[in-house]
């Protein structure tokens, strides 16, 4: 049951990304191109998601536990460090180069085009490389 539910939730997520235009890297990049072909759509995607997420989380996290688990798994870390800042800046640079982010590229796979697959292969390699670097530290 948890697996079927997760698949359905994933379908809602993927539909939202597609409807919002966020599986299209050209559209994502045009959001950042304020000085050129500006397309503010991404702001509306974030706005819609945050409005529902903000209210929904408040209702859900008031409950004692989730349906399929004994507790809510929330990030424990609250400190600001160089890893958070440096990593996020690096992510932004990569995002700005091609317009793919993890949440856009995974649903993008369903469009059966080579670019999201190529991006995700490189990104997966990046994740594994970074985990080795971090583990070795």
């Amino acid at each position: 049951m948890p697996v079927i539910a997760a698949a359905l939730i994933g379908m809602i997520f993927g539909s939202g990304i597609l409807l919002g235009g966020m599986a299209n890297p050209a559209k994502v990049l045009n959001f950042f191109d304020v000085a050129g072909n500006w397309d503010p759509s991404l702001l509306f995607v974030m706005g819609g998601a945050l409005a529902v997420g903000f209210i929904g989380y408040r209702l859900v996290l008031r409950r004692p536990r989730p349906v399929f688990d004994t507790r809510f798994h929330l990030p424990a870390k609250s400190t600001i460090d160089t890893s958070l800042i440096g990593g996020s800046i690096l992510f932004g640079i990569g995002w700005g180069i091609a317009g793919f982010c993890p949440g856009g590229a995974i649903p993008g796979l369903g469009l059966l085009r080579p670019e999201p697959l190529l991006f995700l292969a490189a990104m997966s390699a990046g994740i594994l490389i970074a985990r080795r670097i971090r583990g070795a530290r």
Partner: peptide
């Protein structure tokens, strides 16, 4: 871009 994103998000 993929490599940078993968390292960055991690």
């Amino acid at each position: 871009s993929g490599l940078l994103v993968g390292i960055g998000v991690t």
